[in-house]
């Protein structure tokens, strides 16, 4: 109840504008193209070719809340980008880690009462634990119940090496478990 009152008093557009005040004007306008959410998560700066990988990682097809996806937006930093807004969902650390692998420049905004409560810049970890499937069919991890483990050799473009079979994989071979 209290939340609804608050919303009425402040108005969602206004809050959004206030929060992204440092952003250039055109970015602000684009932000508004997708409807704001009152509670949930906004993932920004996703490379367009990773949009649906993020959808998969978060299993958004089976999410019951509102999901809005906008892709092919202009971005100053990464060329074209996508934004995904997920109502009523907060991300686990493991989900954030997975997003970092497909979208190394993404930012995760935690929304409460139409307000950006926290802005997390994802970080590609040095070691990726049990997130990526090894592309080598004769790797022990594809034949035995073993959590996978990869060392990050290069962050951009991503190159990782399997702890077990020592095969290295590029961005194009990466499949999320």
């Amino acid at each position: 109840m209290a939340r609804r009152k608050k919303k009425g008093r402040r108005g969602k557009e206004k809050i959004r504008a206030k929060k992204v005040i440092q952003a250039p004007k055109e970015e602000l306008k684009r932000e508004l193209k997708i409807s704001a959410i009152d509670e949930g998560t906004v993932i920004d700066h996703i490379p367009t070719d990773a949009t649906f990988k993020v959808v998969d990682i978060l299993d958004l097809e089976n999410h019951s809340g509102i999901v809005s996806i906008a892709t092919n937006l202009q971005s100053k930093t990464i060329g074209r980008k996508a934004i995904i807004k997920v109502g009523g969902k907060s991300l686990t650390q493991s989900e954030v880690n997975k997003i970092a692998i497909v979208a190394p420049d993404a930012t995760v905004n935690i929304i409460k009462n139409y307000d950006v409560r926290e802005k997390i810049k994802v970080k590609t970890p040095d070691i990726i634990d049990n997130v990526v499937k090894c592309s080598n069919p004769v790797c022990i991890t594809n034949n035995e119940q073993v959590p996978t483990k990869f060392y990050v050799l290069k962050k951009d473009p991503l190159k990782i090496k399997c702890h077990y079979c020592e095969r290295s994989m590029g961005k194009e071979d990466i499949e999320i478990i």
Binding site: V138, C139, I140, V146, Y164, C165, E166
Partner: peptide, 9 residues
């Protein structure tokens, strides 16, 4: 062992 990484495991 025929599988790669088996010795490490």
């Amino acid at each position: 062992h025929p599988l790669e990484g088996s010795a490490r495991l």
